[in-house]
Amino acid sequence: MATEEHGSGLQIHPMDQFVVKPLFGDGPVEWYTPTNVTLWMGIAILAVVALLVLSTRRRAIVPSRGQSVAELFYGFIHKMVEDVTGHEGLKYFPYVMTLFMFVFLSNMLGLIPMSFTTTSHIAVTAVLALLVFLTVTLVGFYRKGIGFLAMFWVSSAPLALRPVLALIELISYFVRPVSHSIRLGGNLMAGHAVIKVFAGFAGVMGVASIVPIAGIAAIYGLEILVAAVQAYVFTILTCVYLRDAVGDAHH
């Protein structure tokens, strides 16, 4: 780290919060090592169970608060899948719901001070995006066969332009997982790093640190919005991509 190497002024380490480290001991991080990633993903699972299973265990016709929230999430994603992907897409509703709940809860859990944000890691978001990409591609070829490729052949454009458009469409198709993953990871990482930088200012400014602390409060509010919006965007883009594979490619 640059500031460390030169021993100058501010000791701000905005990236420290993203370090993956083993939960027990100091050993190397093997693929099976329980790390803070494991811990916070486990907490995310517990949150999903608490939110969607425990709160609905009474199956009340008149819902309690927790059950209302669970039904709200269910209805929200169900409607999104149905509206964007079409009726056929409801088969993939549990899959989309899984992605949404994981991303949403990881984003929110990451906002707890001293926590670890799993979705700020490119490794995690890249896997999520690649899963979507592979699902869309495989489902598209499975359902439409070679006709899936018609997606790249824009039949409404003039004939001369079509090869160029096909190339652009093809490139944009393969860039999808990149932008899909970097958007989520980058947003989360940026927000957390900015908060950390402000916190570093607060550490050295004495009484005037009230200003960066107020700034942190404001950015924290913004980050809550970002966490929800990015989960929403990730999910709705998943639905949009699924529509290519499931619904009518052109509408």
Partner: peptide, 18 residues
């Protein structure tokens, strides 16, 4: 590898629960 492994475990668990 560590993150990807635990992510896949998490996703499978959440998917099954859901």
């Amino acid at each position: 590898p560590n993150q990807i492994f635990w992510l896949l475990v998490t996703l499978v668990v959440i998917y099954l629960v859901l």
